[in-house]
């Protein structure tokens, strides 16, 4: 069931600076980005301002400072500060995010809430697949999903993970696999990145 070819599933292209932008902010949910997140000839050094996650409670970043590198205490800390930053930004900024898929779409949600269009932010989901899957039957969010079949932690239905992604809800859809024939199943596969 891999390769469902569903158009709502995001396609991630390695990042490069948008030449049309006036200012550029690169956001990473880790201490350093993986090399494959960048287009050939591009590296983190090409982005004048970089935000990363130190995973340390004493980190003390300056989110309104402008160019340079800032390290945040956690991904949640970073996202909260990003909201404040975008509220003070002027037109011409481009955002770039590298990290877990749901982190990238948290960044995108901040951008949309600030009125940015889809041509103003660029995402690259890195690392092992760890999807957020919403059970369409009981609404439970199942985190860190890496296979195409899971048991919903809420209603215990066996869910098939469809490649149908909601940007607004930041989740993939899970649908009961054996609603028609109880016990019916398919081979479990690892999800592809």
């Amino acid at each position: 069931m891999s390769g469902q070819d569903i158009k709502s599933r995001p396609v991630y292209t390695p990042l490069a600076r948008d030449p049309a932008g006036r200012a550029h902010l690169l956001i990473i949910d880790d201490a350093a980005p993986p090399a494959e997140a960048f287009a050939p000839g591009t590296s983190a050094a090409d982005f004048p301002e970089t935000w990363s996650v130190a995973a340390h409670s004493q980190a003390l970043p300056a989110p309104l400072a402008g160019n340079g590198a800032q390290a945040f205490r956690s991904a949640s800390h970073l996202i909260a500060m990003l909201r404040h930053r975008l509220a003070r930004e002027t037109m011409g900024l481009r955002l770039y995010a590298i990290g877990a898929e749901h982190f990238c779409w948290d960044v995108a949600a901040c951008a949309s809430a600030a009125g940015m269009g889809r041509d103003e932010f660029f995402l690259y989901a890195a690392g092992k697949p760890a999807r957020r899957v919403v059970c369409v039957h009981c609404r439970t969010l199942n985190e860190g999903v890496s296979t195409n079949l899971i048991t919903c932690t809420g209603c215990h239905a066996r869910l098939f993970v469809r490649d149908h992604f909601s940007r607004l809800g930041n989740a993939f859809m899970g649908v009961q696999i054996d609603a028609e024939v109880p016990g019916e199943t398919i081979e479990i596969e690892e999800l592809s990145a």
Binding site: A20, G21, A23, M91, G92, L93, G117, R118, D119, E120
Partner: peptide
């Protein structure tokens, strides 16, 4: 002028 200042076409 908007393009020169980094405005995206969508705006």
């Amino acid at each position: 002028q908007a393009a020169a200042l980094g405005w995206p076409a969508s705006h």
